[in-house]
Measured scan of single mutants.
Amino acid sequence: MATADDFKLIRDIHSTGGRRQVFGSREQKPFEDLVDLGWLKRSSVDSRATHYQITERGTSAAL
């Protein structure tokens, strides 16, 4: 179930172009929650960072 923080984060991601790069596993937790909701997808993972991209469902949630 989505929380107020989830909606705040997806709106922030949407307003800044729909993509986010995250460093460190602790910082990934809120983004992984949005992946579980179907609002974000992991577009790539490298040794230092994970890249996320907003989905259509995420765009709808952000509006």
Rank of each mutant, 00 (worst) to 15 (best):
S25Q: 14
W39L: 02
D6E: 07
V45N: 08
T59V: 14
T55H: 01
S47F: 10
D36E: 14
S44D: 09
H51C: 14
S47K: 11
S25F: 10
Q28N: 08
I10C: 02
Q28H: 07
D33H: 15
Q21R: 12
P30F: 05
T55S: 04
K41D: 12
Y52K: 00
R20H: 05
S60Y: 13
S25K: 14
L40N: 01
S60D: 12
D6H: 12
I54W: 01
D33M: 14
S25Y: 11
A61Y: 04
K41H: 12
A4L: 12
K41R: 13
L63T: 09
D5E: 13
T16D: 08
H51E: 15
E56M: 09
A2T: 05
G18A: 02
E27V: 07
R42Y: 07
G58P: 00
L37V: 03
F23Y: 11
G24Y: 07
S25H: 13
Q53P: 01
R48L: 15
R19I: 12
F23M: 12
D36R: 15
R42M: 08
D12E: 14
I13H: 00
G18K: 02
A62V: 05
L34S: 01
T59H: 07
S44K: 14
L63A: 06
L37Y: 06
S44F: 15
T50M: 07
F23V: 12
E27Y: 11
V35Y: 03
I10D: 00
R19C: 13
K8W: 12
Q53D: 08
G17Y: 04
K29A: 08
V45H: 11
K8L: 10
G58E: 01
V35H: 03
Q21I: 15
A49H: 10
F23T: 13
H14C: 08
S60W: 13
R26A: 15
A4F: 10
S47A: 13
F23A: 12
D36C: 09
S60F: 14
S60T: 13
R26P: 09
I54F: 01
Q28W: 05
T59I: 15
R11Q: 10
E56V: 08
F31K: 01
R42G: 05
W39C: 02
G18S: 03
